[in-house]
Write a protein that binds this DNA or RNA. Sequence first.
DNA 1: TCAATATATTCCTTGACAGGAATATTCCTG
DNA 2: CAGGAATATTCCTGTCAAGGAATATATTGA
Lengths: 110, 110
Amino acid sequence: MNTTTLNALAEPNRLQIIELMREGPLMVGEIANRLHLRQPQASKHLKILSEAGLVEVHADANRRIYRIRLEPLIELDDWLESFRGMWEERFDRLSDYLDHLNKERIIPKS
Amino acid sequence: MNTTTLNALAEPNRLQIIELMREGPLMVGEIANRLHLRQPQASKHLKILSEAGLVEVHADANRRIYRIRLEPLIELDDWLESFRGMWEERFDRLSDYLDHLNKERIIPKS
DNA sequence: TCAATATATTCCTTGACAGGAATATTCCTG
DNA sequence: CAGGAATATTCCTGTCAAGGAATATATTGA
């Protein structure tokens, strides 16, 4: 997995921006209003999201319309895929491991 | 979604620790060795992962055996669920939106 | 009991980053 | 063209987090 995606999403306001955008493209001002951010901060967060590929811009005269890009989220989903096998599977290899150590006398007891 | 999970995963070394642990529980020393970290840094990262609920510890004499906890990853997966609808769905509401603006004369042209 | 091993914790320093305020830029309208 | 709207950018400041080094703590073994 790619750290920049996670890093971009790890900031609360940016995460909210992404969640807002589930419902469709938004202008900077709208984002700022809905999240009670000042416009410059909104722009800065959008820049970071943009550099992480999580959003893309469409210039429309004065305005910039941002919309979500799904690719990074798909990558994240693919990464989680590699854990999904464990989801249900009872995960008690720990005891197996400890038994193994005992058998190998790596852990001397008493 | 919860920011602490994302924050914990956003640090490269911590992400690698989690990836290492897909294969089973590990002692601090092993993690430090495999990732070329110094022991204290490994402990620190593990502490943060632990506080985020991404790992849990099992004390065994001298050693601490850490293993992955799936709950936060499942939560992350659930969050992605809310985007999965868009995965394939062509996302061209942007043009709809612009048409809407035009119709409403919010964007005066010429 | 003393040394060694495994791990956690503390202190320090440095760099990244977020927010505030002010300013620059672009485009539209009267 | 002047003014205003929408957005980006810059500068500054404070905070926080990560790594390094040293030290503390606990457990086992001679």
